[in-house]
């Protein structure tokens, strides 16, 4: 009984999907189960997952953040630029990160204010900022890519620090994974244990009623955009450190994958429904699918097609199951007047 429930339930399906993907990979591609590939998959997952943890806040409110990809790019560029300009000093590294996070938080505030005070649709605001940030990245780097000088790594400890975000393995676990897990735990705590998490769900479920029980809807909304921007910034720094470079296209179009993770994770884009576990599952799914297509040497451009198809299919499934749930609800709800 328990097992049947598990398989029939959302979690059973989720695990089943992941297992099936892995099984298919095991059969078709020997490379999949190599250590190098595992690391690559985990890196991808941790970058997407970190972004997803932040975007979850905005999506729970009923919004959408399409600027996370460009946000990551800008953060990466700021860090790279300041680190390079400072000549790879510790101040440069720490200052770069502080500046990057501050800028992204500020942009998050502006986005949140556009949504709350100007009442603009969330996706329009964040889409606009996607392009604004995408355009701003070359302003920071001076138009070209900045490469971390990997060959001097061993000599300069600070330089190693930048490099090490992507490659350090405290306790044998790559640092990006640790960062990812940290954000998952943080998001989990915020969403399930704090009053802010409760308020997020309440606002996403019914903002009018939320305002009438004293929730400061605007403030909480702005905070959600800050959280999303901050996570995107962290993901951007991690990404640039993994790739040892930063530039305009760093993180470009990642929002599509993160959105896919959201939708696949069963998070209701209308707001008020979804959880961290869904976002994590979504990130795992996206990471595995991306890796699978890369290993099967499907052109990265063609992967777009799959991405679009998966998002569309997941949206259809969510809408269908939502409607079925709605029908059940109607049937059981006592008929009013």
């Amino acid at each position: 009984m328990k097992i049947r429930q598990f398989i029939g339930g959302a979690w059973g399906q989720r695990v089943a999907i992941l297992v099936i993907i892995c099984a298919v990979m095991a059969v078709f591609e020997r490379q999949f189960f190599t250590a190098a590939n595992a690391a690559s998959v985990l890196f991808t997952i941790s970058v997407y997952g970190t972004m997803a943890c932040g975007m979850l806040f905005v999506v729970l409110l009923g919004g959408l953040d399409l600027s996370v990809g460009s946000m990551a790019g800008v953060a990466a560029c700021i860090v790279a630029r300041l680190v390079q300009d400072s000549g790879y000093t510790a101040e440069g590294v720490i200052g770069g990160m502080l500046v990057a996070f501050a800028v992204c938080v500020a942009v998050g505030v502006v986005q949140g204010m556009c949504v709350t005070y100007l009442k603009m649709p969330s996706f329009v605001v964040t889409l606009s900022f996607k392009y604004i940030l995408y355009g701003a990245a070359p302003l920071i780097t001076g138009g070209s890519f900045i490469y971390y000088q990997g060959n001097a790594v061993a000599e300069n400890p600070v330089q190693r620090f930048v490099y090490s975000i992507g490659s350090a393995r405290p306790f044998g676990v790559p640092l990006p994974i640790i960062i990812f897990v940290f954000f998952v735990v943080a998001a989990l705590v915020v969403v399930t244990k704090t009053t802010y998490g409760r308020r997020l769900y309440a606002i996403g479920g019914n903002d009018t009623a939320s305002a009438l029980v004293g929730i400061r809807v605007r403030r909480d909304t702005i905070v959600a955009y800050i959280a999303s921007s901050f996570c995107a910034a962290v993901a951007g720094v991690v990404l640039s450190s993994i790739n040892m470079q930063a530039g305009q296209t760093t993180g470009n179009n990642y929002e599509g994958s993160v959105l896919m993770a959201m939708i696949v994770g069963g998070i209701n884009l209308a707001g008020g429904e979804g959880d961290v576990a869904g976002a994590v599952f979504g990130a795992l799914f996206v990471g595995l699918i991306t890796n699978m297509m890369t290993l099967l040497s499907i052109s990265p451009d063609f992967q777009k097609f799959a991405q679009g198809a998966i998002i569309l299919a997941a949206v259809c499934i969510n809408a269908y199951s939502g409607r079925r749930a709605g029908r059940v609800k109607l049937a059981t709800a006592p008929a009013g007047k």
Partner: peptide, 30 residues
């Protein structure tokens, strides 16, 4: 429209107005 949050549970709907009494430093006391 103005009263409850339909997608949320009875518990969440009741507790939503009393976070000030049911939390400490922003954390809910389960």
């Amino acid at each position: 429209v103005e009263g409850f949050i339909p997608a949320q549970s009875i518990g969440r709907n009741i507790a939503i107005a009393s976070h000030d009494r049911l939390s400490k430093a922003g954390f809910m006391n389960a």
